[in-house]
């Protein structure tokens, strides 16, 4: 069962509002959908987490 479409919409909207790349919402949603559909391992979790953090834009990451 994938994550509720309203959760998906809310994440997309907030990511856009915070001037973040669309890639960030895709990565967050991929993580949530994996959590929703399967029992993921801790290494999968770390992969998702790193992917999400790499997709963020902060002043520090772009110095």
């Amino acid at each position: 069962m994938s994550i509720d479409h309203e959760v998906e919409n809310a994440i997309n909207e907030i990511v856009l509002e915070l001037n973040q790349d669309k890639k960030l919402s895709r990565k967050v949603l991929a993580w949530l959908n994996d959590l929703s559909e399967k029992d993921i391992s801790s290494s999968d979790d770390i992969e998702h987490l790193k992917g999400v953090l790499r997709s963020t834009y902060t002043e520090e990451t772009n110095k």
């Binding site: 309203e6 959760v7 919409n9 809310a10 907030i14 915070l18 960030l24 967050v28 999400v52 963020t56």
Partner: peptide, 12 residues
């Protein structure tokens, strides 16, 4: 990311 998730919880 935490901010995005917290707000998304409330909004959705």
């Amino acid at each position: 990311v935490k901010n995005i998730l917290s707000r998304a919880t409330v909004n959705s």
